[in-house]
Design a protein around this nucleic acid. Sequence first.
DNA 1: ATGGTAGAAACTCTA
Length: 255
Amino acid sequence: MKIATWNVNSLRVRLPHLLPWLAANAPDVMCLQETKCEDETFPAAELAAAGYRTLHHGQRTYNGVAILSRAAGGAACRGIPAFEDPQSRVIAADFDGMRVVSVYVPNGQSVGSDKYAYKLRWLEALREWLRAELAAHPKLAVLGDFNVAPEDRDVHDPKAWEGQVLASAPEREALRGVLGVGLADAFRLFEQPEKSYTWWDYRMGAFRRNLGLRIDHVLLSPALASGCASCTIDAAPRRLERPSDHAPVMCEVAA
DNA sequence: ATGGTAGAAACTCTA
């Protein structure tokens, strides 16, 4: 079974990249972030024509998360149940005994800002919810844009990024807390090329110079990690004209 | 030095 995640940075703009990517890679489940549209304007018909059912937790202008799937999902959940949040950042559903969660963790803007405090609170709430989800669903996969580079090797210039948002110690600690409920970073289950990143700033020719961060992740419970066959970043869509600033991440798990 | 690019939407905010 192939599961994947991609922060598309506007689904409407990126549909011409997403549809060919789905056709070429054929994920069974695809998590999206930053759809930036309301449920009413979600391109469900175009995705249905491509063979995908859709679950969306939409929002106008900002945020918005979705799960696309070949088969119908069950027990869909929008948001973190015990966390009041006006922003659409989480959607989850069951697929044949596997619980899949699509997350868009707050960016945090800058260390010490209100948005940074919200990000840390948000990651705590996510951690506690996932602890309960894992107890209820041994096959748990959490995919999305976590807006945290876990280690220095996930940052193109660790010195320059030291203490900065996306790489600061409290954010890394918060992400370690999420992993600590019993989830593995699927990408690091395998040997990977050095300087592997999933996000490159649009500015300063960052992608051309590979000035990136690895902030999009696939987290797997032990039952899924033990049967995980691969986890790869596909940088190809970042080279297209008018790309998302993020690359998709694909992961093969036992069916 | 606080730039620069992109998206949505409305002349600004978020990333």
